[in-house]
C-alpha cells in the first residue's frame, strides 16, 4: 500500500492505495464519486475521462499512485458553486446532448478540455477531438451542437435534432 494525496474537485484527499488501484476505482470506490463511468475499462470509450492537472485523461488507464500531488477534476466538479449546472452541462441539457447519459460525464470532461485550449472550435474540430469518446445513443449530432452552443457559437447550421 502507498499513501497518495491529491486534490479532487478542490478538496485535498489522502488515502492508502494498492499499486494496482486505477483512478476509476479510486474515485468510484474510495471516494464514492460515481459520476466517472467505466464503459469499457480498455481505454476505448472515454466514459471515464477526468482532468489531471487540467489535461483530459482516461481514468481507467492511470494508476491512482501516479496522481500523487495532482489536481484532479471529475464530472462532480463541473457544476456551478450553487449546485446549478455548469455551462457545458446546461448546453447538453438544452440541446439534447444525451439520452441514456452513460457517456455524458466523459463527453462533458472532454468538451471542457477542448474548450480550454480552443474556445471557439469548428464542428470538425469538435468531432475530431471527441474521437476517443463513444456514445451508443445520440448519434453525436446533438453532442456536437451542445458543445458549439457552450462555446457561444451559432448552432442553427448543424444538422438534426
Amino acid at each position: 500500500m502507498t499513501e497518495v494525496t491529491m486534490t479532487v474537485n478542490g478538496k485535498s484527499v489522502t488515502k492508502s492505495v494498492k499499486g494496482n488501484t486505477l483512478m476509476t476505482e479510486f474515485l468510484r470506490e474510495e471516494l464514492r464519486l460515481t459520476g466517472t463511468h467505466v464503459g469499457c475499462d480498455t481505454s476505448q470509450c472515454g466514459a471515464c475521462v477526468i482532468h489531471v492537472n487540467g489535461e483530459a485523461i482516461k481514468a481507467c488507464t492511470m494508476f491512482a499512485a501516479e496522481a500523487q500531488g495532482s489536481e484532479v477534476t471529475t464530472i462532480e466538479g463541473m457544476a456551478n458553486a450553487d449546485g446549478s449546472l455548469g455551462v457545458i452541462q446546461q448546453a447538453f441539457q438544452d440541446h439534447h446532448g444525451l439520452q441514456c447519459g452513460f457517456c455524458t460525464p466523459g463527453m462533458v470532461m472532454s468538451a471542457a478540455a477542448l474548450l480550454k485550449d480552443n474556445p471557439k472550435p469548428t464542428e470538425h474540430e469538435i468531432r475530431d477531438y471527441l474521437e476517443g469518446n463513444i456514445c451508443r445513443c445520440t448519434g453525436y449530432h446533438n453532442i456536437v451542437k451542445a458543445i458549439m452552443a457552450a462555446s457561444g457559437q451559432d448552432v442553427s447550421g448543424i444538422a438534426a435534432e
Binding site: 481505454s43 489535461e55 485523461i57 488507464t61
Partner: peptide, 9 residues
Amino acid sequence: IGDPAVRNR
C-alpha cells in the same frame, strides 16, 4: 496517435 486523452499520457 490514439485520441486526445491517450496523447495526454
